[in-house]
Amino acid sequence: MENQTPLVEMRDMHIAFGGNKAVDHVSIDLYPGEVVGLLGHNGAGKSTLIKMLSGAYKADGGEILINGELAEINNPRDARGYKIETIYQTLALADNLDAGSNLFLGRELLTPFGFVDDDAMEAETRKIMSRLNPNFQTFSAPVSTLSGGQRQSVAIARAVYFNAKILIMDEPTAALGPQETQMVAELVQKLKAEGLGIFLISHDIHDVMELCDRISVMKNGKLVGTVRVEDVTDDDILGMIILGKKPMKNTS
């Protein structure tokens, strides 16, 4: 795998808010068909790091390479242009709009006259939902009336629908029950098999150990280290998260 060009390479990224160095010179990478987990305490900087990739924050410094080429990501539109899709922890749904409007938000399907084509969007939403979550039937009500799992499916559908190459999942299972968590896990495996690269941010070590190929751990804005899942135990990872210590057997 190391001979391939990485799908994403973030080099020496840093950003500060006020005096607080939220991300302090961190480098990570991601290969096609790979799931890289980002672990760390609340406030370790994992979400902030990833938001520089999704265009939500503009980095103070560092460079992002997509397929080996320098990428200019200044806003979420740029990120989408590079086929980077993000499922935010907050889901980032407009609660007052229906599922279709949310799925296509910012990328509406238009009629030949340039008007928003709600019927076509609903038809597409029905199609993708029948694949992702066949139980999903509420297409014309505001998403505020949906359950947590259904809202999550809308957010996932939005990321998957537009043929993403790079998928960022920020705590994708935090609000879900066991059955829905299983659904997300299966989806991750499927997308990985299709050759997507996935960054998975999570608190849950079990989730991460099961789904990820490699794990990068952050603490206080700094990268503790990146390890292959097969080389470490749960305890090694815990040590990295809590103590900020790399395990002795270093492979990365």
């Binding site: 806003n75 989408r80 907050t90 980032a92 609660d95 910012g106 990328r107």
Partner: peptide, 11 residues
């Protein structure tokens, strides 16, 4: 409905 979501959708 959600200014942050709109912003993140590239609006």
């Amino acid at each position: 409905g959600n200014p942050d979501a709109a912003e993140l959708s590239g609006i």
